[in-house]
């Protein structure tokens, strides 16, 4: 008789790495929070904490779209300026054309969704690399935003567009509706990614597209839907942006392009696709927010914050690369 078709599974260090990839950012966050908490008297004030959360809200929501894109092994360099374009559409429609606020909001979200859809079409049908497509879209969206707004800030925005800037009070701490919406979006995305078939397909497409295709998953359709949904999410972020700054600002979104990628990477999602957790991105966004706030409290120029964030990103990507090489 031949030997039975069984051998013991290899006990591997790799089995524990998924938890490590989320542990890293948690430790970093705890360490930073403790550091800033001890170094300044103002960091742990409720005012400051709600300020941080508001900062995190925009990057966090864009980061959700960015995470979906990166999970498919893609990248979106245009997310921030697409959001800016959406916010200009919303405010301009509402203020200058007198469109009912709700319709103006829909128009803005439709515009960003269209951007996402075009990205998706170029990537799946024309087979262009995501990096190039979204780099082009970064320039196009920036230009369109400036042309359409004539580089003018749009003010006098109606209340409905500012809805997510309203706050709930928990004792001394004020939480904006926007922050609650962000948490709800994260939870919803987590649920879809982890509990539904399309969510699992997204991971498979990013992890091993050929295997996914051979099991009958329509990989191109998955990718197209992901970029389109990402566009929709940038539209929601645009609404939050207007709520936070109370104006339509044509120069917004510039830093969020890369900050969203930073948040995703810091949160332990792999740039190679197919690995990562959506709540990691929330953690990443909070890390960016805490760093920014902490440095301000300590009176350190923001340039240093850039320096530290940059180093952290390289560290996170190096960890990712190392994990990939081991497998």
């Amino acid at each position: 008789m031949t030997q039975p078709a069984s051998i013991q599974p290899k006990k591997s260090f790799l089995e524990r790495l998924p938890s490590l990839s989320i542990l890293g950012p948690v430790v970093a966050l705890v360490f930073m929070t403790a550091f800033f908490g001890f170094s300044t008297t103002t960091f742990f004030t409720s005012r400051n904490l709600s300020q941080i959360l508001q900062q995190v809200m925009i990057v966090g929501v864009i980061g959700i779209g960015q995470t979906l894109v990166i999970l498919t092994a893609g990248i979106d360099l245009s997310c921030g300026v697409v959001m800016a374009f959406g916010s200009i559409v919303m405010t301009k429609f509402a203020v200058e054309y007198g469109v009912p606020p709700i319709l103006a909001i829909f128009a803005g979200i439709a515009a960003t969704t269209l951007f996402g859809f075009i990205n998706g079409i170029l990537i799946t049908r024309v087979k262009l690399p995501p990096f190039i497509v979204t780099l082009g879209m970064l320039n196009i969206a920036t230009a369109l935003t400036l042309i359409y707004s004539k580089s003018q800030t749009i003010s006098g925005v109606p209340d409905a567009l500012l809805f997510f800037g309203n706050t709930l009070k928990f004792g001394e701490t004020q939480i904006t509706y926007g922050v609650i919406l962000m948490l709800a979006l994260f939870t919803l995305t987590w649920f879809i990614l982890s509990e539904t078939a399309p969510g699992r397909h997204l991971y498979a497409v990013g992890n091993q597209p050929e295997a996914a295709r051979l099991t009958g998953i329509p990989t191109d359709r998955v990718i197209l839907v992901v970029y389109t949904v990402a566009g929709l999410i940038y539209g929601i972020a645009a609404w939050l942006l207007v709520s936070r700054y109370t104006v339509g600002n044509p120069n917004a979104g510039q830093t969020e392009n890369l900050e969203s990628i930073t948040a995703v990477v810091l949160g332990g999602t792999s740039l190679f696709g197919g690995r990562g957790m959506i709540f990691g991105t929330l953690l990443g966004a909070i890390i960016i927010g805490v760093l920014a706030s902490g440095f301000i409290q300590m009176g350190i120029p923001s340039t240093y914050q850039l320096l530290i964030t940059g180093a952290l990103v390289i560290l996170a990507v190096a960890t990712d690369q190392f994990t990939k090489r081991k497998s």
Binding site: Y203, Q208, A211, A212, G216, G274
Partner: peptide, 18 residues
């Protein structure tokens, strides 16, 4: 290319046919 390495065995068995 028959399997998705980052996914679990159970997920791979039912990939596309959950």
């Amino acid at each position: 290319l028959a399997v998705a390495p980052a996914m679990t065995i159970a997920e791979n068995l039912f990939l596309g046919r959950e």
